[in-house]
Simulated assay, not measured.
Amino acid sequence: MLVLYVHGMGRSPLSGWPMLRRLRQAGLRTSVFGYVAALESFDSIVRRLRKHIEHIARQGPYAVAGHSLGGVLLRAALAGMPAGTLQPKHVFLIGSPVSSARLAVKLKSRWVFKLLAGDCGQLLAAPERMSTVSGPQVPTTAIVGVAGLRGRLSPFGDELNDGVVSDSEVSASWISAKVELRQLHTFLPASASVADIIVRSCARDTD
């Protein structure tokens, strides 16, 4: 099986290199998709990603994994795939918000955030836009970090979080399974534990 990885905002495909290497060591093939949020609109990235997935789907069974914004992009791309396109065996959302993110809401008016995050950052801050990105119609696992600061000094209060998104922001009724890891948001893609979760799930999906 092939696993497609889509990185998060402000990162590159290299952010998932440790995880992808572990997947390949386990016998899985890998592919990556890159984008620059500051230079492309959300919709334009989704269109490119959809074409990439169509190409992969013609090659046989596959799974997809998206970190942070990458998971939102994957959900949007999969929702608009042409009829008859082979769907992924599994979707892995790695620290990926399924509703508007409170940090994006706080930052959305600041010029630096507007410059670096572009239209994608504004989407993450808009409940009405995020609500239009539907959940996948295939098994979906949310891999979430819970090592973020909690309490009076945390923007998330006492809620579990990974330092960027909270537990409620990565939770939805259509998610098949949720796995919590003692990791911060930035380090999730490099985690061996994330890779192991994907390997085990892909093994079950091919049985």
Score class of each variant (00 low, 15 high):
residue 202 C to Y: 07
residue 127 P to E: 14
residue 3 V to T: 10
residue 157 G to T: 04
residue 161 N to K: 00
residue 19 M to G: 02
residue 58 R to D: 01
residue 162 D to Q: 01
residue 161 N to H: 04
residue 154 S to F: 09
residue 50 R to D: 10
residue 178 K to G: 00
residue 129 R to E: 11
residue 151 G to N: 06
residue 203 A to P: 12
residue 138 V to M: 14
residue 133 V to Y: 04
residue 136 P to I: 08
residue 73 L to W: 00
residue 138 V to K: 08
residue 70 G to T: 04
residue 41 S to M: 06
residue 60 G to K: 04
residue 7 H to M: 12
residue 52 H to R: 15
residue 86 L to G: 06
residue 163 G to I: 00
residue 92 F to W: 00
residue 156 F to Q: 08
residue 23 L to P: 01
residue 37 A to L: 09
residue 48 R to Q: 14
residue 106 K to N: 13
residue 161 N to Y: 00
residue 61 P to S: 06
residue 140 T to P: 01
residue 29 R to T: 11
residue 4 L to P: 10
residue 115 L to H: 12
residue 184 L to M: 14
residue 196 D to M: 15
residue 4 L to Q: 09
residue 107 L to S: 08
residue 42 F to W: 10
residue 75 R to H: 11
residue 2 L to A: 13
residue 55 H to M: 15
residue 110 R to M: 12
residue 143 I to L: 04
residue 200 R to E: 14
residue 115 L to G: 10
residue 117 A to L: 08
residue 143 I to T: 00
residue 88 P to K: 01
residue 67 H to I: 07
residue 149 L to N: 02
residue 148 G to W: 05
residue 206 T to L: 11
residue 149 L to K: 08
residue 144 V to S: 07
residue 11 R to F: 03
residue 173 S to L: 13
residue 169 E to C: 06
residue 31 S to I: 12
residue 195 A to N: 01
residue 202 C to T: 12
residue 166 S to C: 07
residue 91 V to E: 02
residue 106 K to C: 12
residue 153 L to Y: 03
residue 203 A to Y: 09
residue 143 I to R: 04
residue 206 T to G: 06
residue 115 L to C: 13
residue 192 A to E: 14
residue 172 A to N: 09
residue 97 P to H: 00
residue 98 V to D: 01
residue 42 F to I: 13
residue 59 Q to D: 02
residue 14 L to E: 14
residue 79 A to M: 07
residue 198 I to R: 03
residue 44 S to M: 11
residue 50 R to T: 09
residue 163 G to D: 09
residue 200 R to G: 10
residue 145 G to L: 08
residue 119 D to F: 13
residue 191 S to D: 09
residue 155 P to A: 07
residue 73 L to M: 11
residue 12 S to R: 13
residue 74 L to Y: 09
residue 31 S to K: 08
residue 29 R to V: 12
residue 41 S to V: 13
residue 132 T to C: 13
residue 5 Y to L: 08
residue 53 I to N: 00
residue 124 L to M: 07
residue 184 L to Y: 02
residue 91 V to Y: 05
residue 69 L to P: 04
residue 66 G to P: 03
residue 191 S to V: 12
residue 73 L to N: 05
residue 207 D to F: 15
residue 136 P to F: 00
residue 111 W to F: 05
residue 9 M to P: 04
residue 150 R to I: 05
residue 188 L to R: 02
residue 14 L to V: 14
residue 199 V to T: 15
residue 168 S to G: 09
residue 5 Y to N: 04
residue 74 L to S: 06
residue 58 R to V: 07
residue 38 A to I: 13
residue 53 I to P: 06
residue 162 D to G: 03
residue 28 L to F: 04
residue 5 Y to M: 03
residue 15 S to D: 12
residue 84 G to I: 01
residue 121 G to E: 01
residue 160 L to H: 07
residue 49 L to Y: 06
residue 174 W to D: 13
residue 166 S to V: 00
residue 205 D to I: 11
residue 197 I to M: 03
residue 52 H to A: 14
residue 65 A to C: 12
residue 85 T to A: 05
residue 19 M to V: 09
